[in-house]
Write a protein that binds this DNA or RNA. Structure first.
Lengths: 344, 344
DNA sequence: AGCAGTTTTGTAAAGGATTACATCATCCCC
DNA sequence: GGGGATGATGTAATCCTTTACAAAACTGCT
């Protein structure tokens, strides 16, 4: 009975109050003022449930990420939320903690809340979960899930180009023995990065050595353990790419612990360019993942889908190498060139 | 008309369907089975808005933090969300970006969504915003806002004890000249930490030198600039406490840039113990802020408030010093003791 | 003043679930 | 077999907005 109270106080009908509330045209200035005053005096806030019950839309988007504790994601969340707020859309937010099976329950929860659309920004997606959303008529957008791109809107990121830049750089520094710290096989994004790494290696005519690829859990600890394995190889790589920055940081720690100088005896390049990358010692060279862009495209795709439009096949986003101080000439080449480049 | 379809198909009334849906007792087994089947066959999902419109509760909590990009917060958010999920409560989440004025619009947005309760976990709170919530009958809980503790439930954190531990440690290392990197005056938590620092200094009989207190913006950049100011002092402090870890990291960078060895010539202690603290070089000694505990207490307080109970005045949480490698004997004392303690 | 054409405003029907209360069916036992 | 207790189900009001449609109030003009 609440819009009715306002209506009474303003001596108009509920329809008029509603019109004022929603900015519909055709309400006289003076009436509008009266209604506004009544609203203010009564401290009236429209009931969102009555509204969405009637209208069918909730102006609520779901956002699911892999891991809120990985500093990669907060920036994405932040960007997504800012866009949403500008459109008066609220965001319901959860994470799967890298467990693809958890996606289904996340999606279900969102469906139960009847969000208008869901952005699934995880490293891996479990398809049945998406089908649930589809059945409920809720549009979905994915982050770089090529294998599902034909069935669901997708924001593609071309890992390969980033790795190519990184390899170009390492090759120019004389590195030929290059290792890789991969993510778990269960994550699509990890598999994709691993594949992109291999492709880039081969395209440069380099050999892929299986023992120079170690897998971690996408977190610091996993990176440290993976690096320990790589350091134990004989011969061992002179440079290592990591599948994300957290693992690169772990790699750095392992190198420190083993008294292997970075970048003196070992070059390390990360992936993502999270803020931490610039804070560790030496500052980490890394491949910048354009996450704000990803958020923007994802949001745009959802809005498009809500209008019933087909998603426009946008060109893939390109990550680029950001040089800091964790790379230097390869030890062998170094001797030859006599330390032309200094450690940070 | 949707529960009605189910009712028809199961040849019962909507009331019975509703009873089955909500697990109310007193429905015959066979009826229940029929209803269940109808629900399954029709793929029926109850409309959450119709439900909350009727019931008044949404099982939706609001959570407002200062800065999602500060790694202090994701862990708090994570903990809060996990507790909520266990209770089948969803979390609506935003941040003020350290701007107290933004709190009001955040709270308004939450009220408009008619959340059941709001956790305001920001460094500073703008009281009018809370009044809005109070007017709307929505319980609120704050993080360490002593000045408002009498009017709103509050999760107190006793900064002083953390600073005392830190000072004890520094004094034991022979430091007497101790500086402080404070946060902006506009943030209550920053003022509180500054006050706690001063109190701790005085209680140890040390002098507070105004020029040894520099303010930053709670981020890395601000910490760097503040440290530059402190380094320019003559004499300059031999140890510096920072109001949060991000600023401590900035301080570290400034020291590096100025070729001041940490901890050799300068000891630094942060506050919060965010993951980054362990990743920088040298690993940062810091005062651990018990944020998961804070989240748990905040959540509990809200649930209590929803039951209409008075919040129980819990004892303040105690932050503790976590020793890593950014502190060492004071330079003067060092000479005397001849480097008893090594730099990390 | 009266009429047509615009503007403004009002009326009342959705929208979908919950729930107090009423009703009907059963069952037990005298 | 009837009265009362108990159990199962149904009826209809309610929650609060939005909005199609109807009605009223203006405007300008003859």
């Amino acid at each position: 009975m609440d819009i009715l109270q306002v209506a009474k106080r303003a001596r108009v009908s509920t329809a008029t109050v509603s019109r004022v509330l929603n900015g519909f045209p055709g309400v006289r200035e003076t009436t509008m003022a009266r209604v506004r005053r009544a609203i203010a005096e009564l401290n009236y806030v429209p009931n969102p449930h009555a509204r969405s019950l009637r209208v069918g839309r909730t102006r609520l988007f779901g956002l699911i990420v892999s891991d809120i504790n990985n500093p990669f994601f907060p920036e994405l969340v932040d960007a997504f939320e800012a866009l949403a707020a500008a459109e008066k859309i609220e965001v319901l937010f959860t994470h799967t903690n890298y467990d693809p099976r958890r996606l289904q329950s996340c999606v279900r929860r969102m469906i139960e809340r009847s969000v208008d659309a869901i952005a699934v920004m995880t490293s891996e997606v479990d398809e049945p979960a998406l089908e649930d959303a589809a059945k409920a008529g809720i549009p979905v957008v994915l982050m770089n899930q090529r294998r599902l791109a034909s069935r669901y809107p997708n924001v593609p990121v071309e890992y390969a180009s980033g790795f190519r830049e990184a390899l170009d750089h390492l090759l120019a520094l004389g590195h030929r023995d290059i290792g890789f710290i991969a993510g778990p096989e269960t994550l699509y994004s990890a598999r994709a990065r691993r594949a992109a790494f291999k492709t880039a290696l081969k395209s440069h005519g380099l050999h892929v050595r299986a023992e120079w690829i170690a897998a971690g859990d996408m977190r610091v600890e996993g990176g440290r353990m993976a690096m320990e394995k790589l350091l134990a190889c004989d011969p061992r790589p002179t440079a290592v790419l990591a599948s994300n920055d957290l693992m690169a940081v772990g790699a750095l720690q392992a190198a420190h612990a083993a008294h292997v100088a970075v970048p003196g005896s070992l070059s390390i390049i990360g992936f993502d360019d999270i803020p931490i990358a610039a804070m560790v010692h030496p500052p980490l060279s890394t491949i910048r993942h354009p996450r704000r862009e990803v958020a923007a495209r994802a949001f745009a795709a959802l809005q498009l889908a809500l209008k019933g439009a087909k998603p426009d096949a946008c060109p893939a986003l390109q990550p680029h190498l950001v040089l800091r101080n964790s790379t230097a000439a390869a030890p062998a080449a170094r001797r030859a060139r006599k330390g032309r480049r200094q450690a940070g």
